[in-house]
């Protein structure tokens, strides 16, 4: 049987991809950010060794334009190419999908009342490739297959935190009913506090971000009830991406244990947050 063995939360700032691609991860600016991921890279390589990552992220006007806006979309393809986001695609390996697991989750979710959009072909942008670089470094080939799960966090209303958590629970049920023996991780990406628009741009909130990280650990589900307006007021207009971390948290079940945690301000316009969680059964 497939099982979800761990959850990872991480920011996916595009500048982190630039730092990796230009070999700047050890400099004064990026060094402290990347240091906080060293533990995770080693753990992924030597201990966790996932077969598949369900990677919850959002597309930033790359695969989807303003025309079609799926709230929750799942990638069921065999492979995905890094997107050209306006300055050429990142020079990172293509992403291998897990079409069997993707389709199994898609079908299970629809039967479980989550009306998913299914994607066969798409390019994946920094929202997906930056977390892969942060967790896996710079291999010739990504060590795990990926089931992309794209969430609309751009056009309002975006899904509620509660709905994201419930989707995570349904994903866990779907994974558990997949017959093949697979070690599956789920990653929630985006955030933490940042605002990329308007006169209030540049807002960061260390205190609130860390409260959010605290709330992901243990057996409380209070975090699922934080309303959108609180994310917007406290963490900036783009801080809303943190609802995607709740898909990850919901998939880990009633209780979690924290294996690793990291927080750093700033990276470009954004606060970097990272957490590794294990389900407690």
């Amino acid at each position: 049987m497939a099982r979800i063995t761990a959850g990872v939360g991480s920011s996916h700032v595009p500048l982190l991809g630039v730092a990796v691609d230009q070999g700047k991860t050890g400099d004064d600016y990026f060094g402290p950010i990347f240091k906080g991921y060293e533990w995770t890279r080693q753990w992924e390589r030597d201990t966790a060794k996932p077969d598949v990552v369900i990677l919850v992220y959002n597309d930033h006007a790359s695969a989807f334009d303003a025309n079609i806006i799926p709230t929750f979309a799942i990638g069921c393809g065999e492979h995905y190419k890094p997107a050209d986001e306006g300055w050429g695609p990142r020079n990172v390996p293509d992403v291998a999908g897990h079409a069997d697991l993707g389709w199994h989750i898609a079908q299970s979710l629809i039967l479980d009342d989550f009306d998913m959009t299914i994607i066969n072909e798409m390019d994946v942008d920094h929202g997906l490739t930056v977390p892969l670089s942060m967790m896996f470094g710079t291999p010739d080939k990504w060590p795990a297959k990926v089931v992309p799960l794209a969430v609309n966090v751009v056009t309002y209303p975006v899904p509620s935190g509660n709905r994201c958590w419930a989707l995570g629970e349904a994903i866990a049920r779907a994974v558990e009913s997949f017959p093949e023996d697979l070690n599956v991780q789920i990653w929630g990406t985006g955030g933490m506090s940042h605002q990329l628009q308007g006169p209030r741009a540049g807002l960061l909130n260390r205190e609130w971000d860390n409260m959010f990280l605290d709330m992901l650990v243990g057996d409380s589900d209070a975090v699922r009830h934080i309303p959108h307006i609180e994310y917007l007021r406290e963490t900036g207009s783009e801080g809303i991406e943190m609802v995607m971390w709740l898909v990850m948290r919901g998939a880990l079940g009633k209780q979690t244990k924290c294996l690793h945690r990291h927080y750093h301000i700033p990276c470009s316009n954004t606060a970097i947050g990272h957490i590794v969680l294990e389900p407690v059964t």
Binding site: Q195, P199, R200, H228
Partner: peptide
């Protein structure tokens, strides 16, 4: 009510369906 709250945030234009 949900949309009205967004207008109370200083220096911010939330990307609502109306703006989209």
């Amino acid at each position: 009510e949900y949309l009205a709250e967004f207008e109370d945030i200083p220096g911010t234009r939330v990307y609502t369906a109306a703006r989209a």
